[in-house]
Amino acid sequence: MNHGDTPETGRPEIPTRLLVHALVREDGTVDAGELYAVAGLLGMTDQQVRLCVKRLVTEGRFTREGRGRKAVLRAVADATGAVAPDAGHVRHAYRQDHGLAPWDGIWHLFAFAVPESRRTARDALRGTLLHLGAAPVQGGLYVSANPIAEPVEAQARHLGVLDTVTFLTSTDLRMGDTGDPRRLAAAMWPLEEIAARYEQLAAFATACARHLASGPRLSGAERLTLAVELAAEFTRAMEPDPLLPPELLPQPWPGSRARRLAQECWTALRALPAAHGTPTPLPRLFRLYSDAVTPPDGQ
């Protein structure tokens, strides 16, 4: 495969460290030969790879047996967190896509007044709310369309600021003279930016599926390269998505289409026969993503 045939527009830069984590196999090892081959297809230099491996070993994240391309890296702990999707987050997205998670019309609000002396805890609580998809309404007040009170409470308790947080729900949220739920969502979340990321994912997944259907058999390194790129594109689109219910989103919403195309591409990629008829162990990444994007039962 000519790697230049795969889509370039909007492709996120893949850090060398993330690539190493992405190639961890089920037995916790990384084949250095595969690592250098995939890195080369991604435009990384051998020097980049050598320096990255050296840092990971120095940090105690991996051990190394052998040298150069014949080396084997072994993860000291689970190294897939950097590339593994949040399976619960992804599954909820696919449930929404299949109409299995309709909105109940309830807004979940969180107000907090953490003193300046606890600024670190305040910033951590704010970061948790944003990570869970909540949006700021005004200073110290955040809102979510999804029921995230449990993890917010757990984090506030962990930070020792639970007594400063107020939890409430409402079916009658209004900002100024705007009370229409869809208009509120458009005002509080960057929907155009989120949609643009999904358009890039859809473009990459479409080109990837077309290439897999019509191109020659891929080498092992080429197959791994596409898998890493697809995972990176998927994460780039999904991580900032608050997963607003479809009732609050413009329709048609590009996220639904992009996730469907990514699932189809991932299924085709995993089903590829081994190059030259020689099977090689697949990275843990294949199982993690396949598990996460499995459609809901009966769909």
Rank of each mutant, 00 (worst) to 15 (best):
T120E: 15
A121I: 05
R122T: 11
D123C: 01
A124G: 01
A124T: 13
R126P: 04
G127D: 14
G127V: 08
T128A: 11
T128V: 07
G133F: 06
G133Y: 08
A135E: 12
P136A: 14
P136V: 11
V137M: 15
G139C: 00
L141W: 06
L141R: 09
S144C: 10
A145C: 08
A145N: 07
A145Y: 05
N146S: 14
P147K: 07
I148M: 05
A149L: 06
E150H: 13
P151L: 02
V152Q: 05
E153K: 14
A156V: 06
A156E: 05
A156T: 08
R157C: 01
R157P: 00
G160K: 13
V161C: 07
V161D: 06
D163P: 00
V165W: 04
V165T: 04
V165I: 09
T166R: 15
T166N: 11
L168D: 09
T171Q: 14
D172S: 13
D172P: 04
D172G: 03
D172R: 14
L173N: 07
M175R: 14
G176Q: 09
D177C: 03
T178G: 01
T178P: 01
D180C: 03
P181D: 04
P181K: 06
P181Y: 09
R182F: 03
R182A: 11
L184Y: 02
A185F: 02
A185G: 04
A187R: 14
M188R: 13
W189C: 01
W189D: 02
P190I: 12
P190S: 09
P190N: 09
L191S: 07
L191N: 07
L191G: 06
E192A: 15
E192N: 11
A195Q: 11
A196V: 03
R197T: 01
E199R: 15
A203R: 13
F204N: 00
A205R: 04
A207V: 09
A209W: 03
L212I: 06
L212N: 02
S214F: 06
G215V: 07
G215M: 04
P216I: 05
P216F: 11
P216L: 08
R217D: 15
R217L: 12
L218P: 10
L218V: 12
L218C: 11
E222H: 12
E222L: 01
R223I: 08
L224M: 13
L224C: 03
